[in-house]
Amino acid sequence: MNITLRVWRQKSRDDEGRMVTYQVEDVSPDMSFLEMLDVLNEKLTLDGHEPVAFDHDCREGICGACGVVINGVAHGPETTTTCQLHMRSFKDGDVIDVEPWRAKAFPVIKDLVVDRGAFDRIIQAGGYISAPTGTAPDAHAMPVPKADADRAFDAATCIGCGACVAACPNASGMLFTAAKVTHLGMLPQGQPERAARVVKMVNQHDEEDFGGCTNIGECAAVCPKGIPLDTISQLNRDLLGSLASGNPK
């Protein structure tokens, strides 16, 4: 099939950027979306143009590196990562708009590549359990009810891709933050730091210039790992409890 792409091209952080139209011919429906971009890039290179820069690595939907907004939807029409989206989700002759994640907290580095360092800094603020190597008791010293372990796992499947931010009308990073708060907060090992953790992480989230959550739910709807929206409510419960019990803002 033949596809018309309108791709965001931006040379560097400070460049203004614009949508540029390309034709991609002989696209196989079995290609992944990124393989279709590979084909475009091969052609651009041979024609002496610069290929389109985009982040990607594992190409099996787990590393969280890839992610572009396709026709206005983060990761495109299927609820999965961009690398797991295949061209059979499109039709011959389609016009496809491809844009980077857009948020102040995720500045564009080049073309479709953005800087998601803000997510790492949110984790630095408290998204961990302090357990220096060698200090651990036996793994069976503390049983964890299966329901809690499962809920922690569901939240822990977050791949940090940033689609939640890209999709949110407020550009909020609350689903990402909440997933980590819930993962660690559901486990007995995470209890000692639970109250302080949520406050520190939400503070960092706000400092990074993410917007606030207004419970619209676009984040959970595009999340490739299906992190549910009630994770944010869990964060809110922890946050209010923590503030009420006198943890500093």
Partner: peptide, 12 residues
């Protein structure tokens, strides 16, 4: 300057 050219909502 950082808004989408095309933005669709999924479920809102």
């Amino acid at each position: 300057g950082q808004r989408y050219h095309t933005k669709k909502s999924v479920q809102r």
